[in-house]
Design a protein around this nucleic acid. Sequence first.
DNA 1: CAGCACCAGTTGTGATGTCAACTCATTTCT
DNA 2: AGAAATGAGTTGACATCACAACTGGTGCTG
Lengths: 176, 176
Amino acid sequence: MTVSTRLAKELCPDGRRSSPTKDHKGRAVVDPGSYIPYFFAAINNALSRGASRLYLQAFDIGIAEWRVISMLAIEPRIPAQRICEVISLDKAATSRSLSRLRELGYLEFKASDRDNRRKIWWLNARGYGLHDKILAVALERERNLIQGVEPDDLEVFLKVMRMMRQNVDRLGGEDV
Amino acid sequence: MTVSTRLAKELCPDGRRSSPTKDHKGRAVVDPGSYIPYFFAAINNALSRGASRLYLQAFDIGIAEWRVISMLAIEPRIPAQRICEVISLDKAATSRSLSRLRELGYLEFKASDRDNRRKIWWLNARGYGLHDKILAVALERERNLIQGVEPDDLEVFLKVMRMMRQNVDRLGGEDV
DNA sequence: CAGCACCAGTTGTGATGTCAACTCATTTCT
DNA sequence: AGAAATGAGTTGACATCACAACTGGTGCTG
């Protein structure tokens, strides 16, 4: 049993789930076994820590670069803005990743016809080669992550994740 | 409709869910509307971005400090190690957070009886005051996050999150 | 009891993610 | 057309997060 689930049972022996719970003196405290932001932090940090180490070591690129590559494989010939939009990557990070990937010889670009500020980017053959190698590793890592999860539960999980993403997108940075 | 769900429908018009999908030429690519690590990154980054800004501005402490405070409210009189264990905070971050919170006058500590390397920490009255103020904001933020999610779906979601956390803990940094 | 492995916590360094200020191009308004 | 507002992308600065080397204390073992 993990530390967090053990703690959750100590604090919520009746099995009731709610992230605010009570300590032994009746003060409201968070329950780390149910408080959603802590779960996100724990899982996401573990995922990106492992991915970062692996991709840097094996392919000499970081996570942001991988995400840009994966996006350019999905939609070739797009401007930086489109990348930011879809994979929630900051435009500063996108800009630096594109520069670095171009230096490393994985990308081609041309200036947009209609707008000289824009560039249109795509993967060259080397870029697709790298994409395919990393994709195999990334999918294996995803399979490890969902190991032991029922397919039906995973569907529900994804539905909730989509709703949460809508919520954070909607609320923007202001209030969430 | 969000960008990601729109894209997911473009790529998976039959509604089938799987994070590897195919582009128009048959190449395997990730589906950003189903690829779980991207969801984690998008949601977690939005959450911690907002929390960081809010807590720094309103209370002059960072996210790590808040997590340490919340843990000390759950279990008073614990050493740093216990904090790391439960809330998945690096021991370096824990050390710095404890120092900072002590400087700001929210904590008390004493050396452990049995082991001079350890200190035992707890919140003083000021610390509990801060805890209660932040907790109210944090729970409100969590309510915003889960807005629109069915309670049953949320149970399933948490079950899957616990399983995923076990998976990343089990696989450690090596392979995940 | 001396040496050695181990452990708790501290500090330095680098990767990631974000914001804000800036440049330069485009569009809008009058 | 000229001025102002908007937009795309670049760059610098800072907060966060993690690893690893290090310090100093503990405890095991010969």
